[in-house]
């Protein structure tokens, strides 16, 4: 088996163990809470029989281990139970809301890499100059406010005072796009409607940027500090004494090894974005998981909470496996050996 495949198998195995741990953790939290979820779901006017019936259906009277067993058996069939809030299967609810959130997070992730890494390289290359100071200041500010504060500020400046971007939503009401993937940026292209695509892209810029800001800042800060360290290595000095152009030294010799530690953090930042998307979505009325997630949490809708957390964690683990593979691909030491864990 080629080393990369072996690495993939190992990482997938670990991820699966972790995911089972996550399900156990969140399931445990959901079952030890005070209050009767069946009573909350049915409202104050429910009869004792109705509550007893619902408790029976949710297996709430069984011992914890048995409840978790039922849950795992359902999960294996792709069934996360019925949401007590929408009365629909949790998997259907999530399938409806998740694409909008994922689209936002993916666009933010692209912004984070496309803006954060070059900023870091720039800052390291001109270390000590005014460019460096400006980039450091801006990135420090970027991580210093939660994404909802940036969302509000960006909205105030670029949607209200300078009406350059729309205030809310994913696309203007005048467009009707049939849903194929749930990703509007993809669906509009499938439909061949370039104007609708432009409209959707125009809607996503501000929320995605608000969400990406702290990630951009982190990526830039980390890339800078790693590169500054790499710049002190003898081989860079050798490249300089050979008279290689500065730009080539920066990108080919200093940036590439600095990328590896940055990528691990980018993977973790992606996780933070999946959570922070809740905040940005609330500000821009983005029809994603946020409103659903907060609503089910406030209603103690056990199945929906467990399902949402599980799906989001699975997304995170998948991204991290991809990041690990990318690192293995970049780093020849891992590509050729199998020592890395």
């Amino acid at each position: 088996m080629p080393p990369v495949l072996r690495l993939l198998a190992k990482r997938l195995g670990t991820s699966l163990i972790v995911l089972i741990g996550v399900s156990l953790l969140i399931f445990a939290i959901a079952r030890v809470i005070p209050g009767d979820p069946a009573r909350i779901a049915l409202g104050p006017n429910a009869t004792a029989e109705a509550i007893a019936a619902l408790r029976e259906r949710l297996h709430l009277d069984d011992p914890f281990v048995l409840q978790y067993g039922y849950f795992l058996a359902d999960l294996a069939r792709g069934d996360l139970g019925i949401s007590l809030y929408t009365n629909r299967p949790v998997t259907r609810d999530i399938a409806d809301y998740l694409p909008a959130t994922l689209e936002l997070v993916i666009v933010s992730g692209i912004m984070m890499v496309a803006l954060g890494l070059p900023l870091g390289v720039l800052s390291a290359r001109y270390r000590g100059s005014w460019i460096d100071h400006v980039v450091r200041m801006v990135t420090l500010l970027g991580v210093s406010a939660p994404s909802f504060v940036w969302a509000v500020i960006l909205m105030l400046v670029f949607a209200f005072y300078l009406p350059l971007f729309p205030i809310a939503g994913r696309i203007s009401d005048s467009y009707t796009i049939s849903s194929v993937t749930g990703f509007l940026l993809v669906d509009t292209l499938i439909a061949g409607d370039v104007k609708a695509f432009g409209n959707a892209a125009w809607h996503i810029v501000l929320p995605a940027f608000a969400l990406a800001l702290s990630g951009i800042a982190q990526a830039a800060r980390l890339t800078r500090s790693n590169m500054v360290e790499t710049y002190e290595r003898p081989y860079i000095e050798m490249a300089k004494s050979y008279g290689f152009p500065e730009k080539r030294i920066a990108w080919r010799y200093a940036f590439k090894p600095s990328l590896i530690p940055s990528m691990t953090i980018i993977g973790l930042d992606f996780a933070a974005m999946l959570g922070n998307a809740f905040l940005v979505e609330a500000v821009f009325a983005w029809p994603g998981l946020s409103r659903y997630g907060v609503a089910v949490i406030l209603r103690k809708d056990l199945n929906a909470i467990v399902g949402t957390v599980l799906i989001i964690s699975a997304m995170f683990l998948i991204v991290n496996v991809i990041v690990d593979l990318l690192i293995a691909f970049i780093n020849p030491r891992i590509r050729y050996s199998q020592r890395a864990s």
Binding site: L19, L25, A272, G275, G293, I305, V309
Partner: peptide, 14 residues
Amino acid sequence: SIPPLVLAMSMMGL
């Protein structure tokens, strides 16, 4: 592997 905010949110809500 649970996004920080999501874990805190769920605990807080429950």
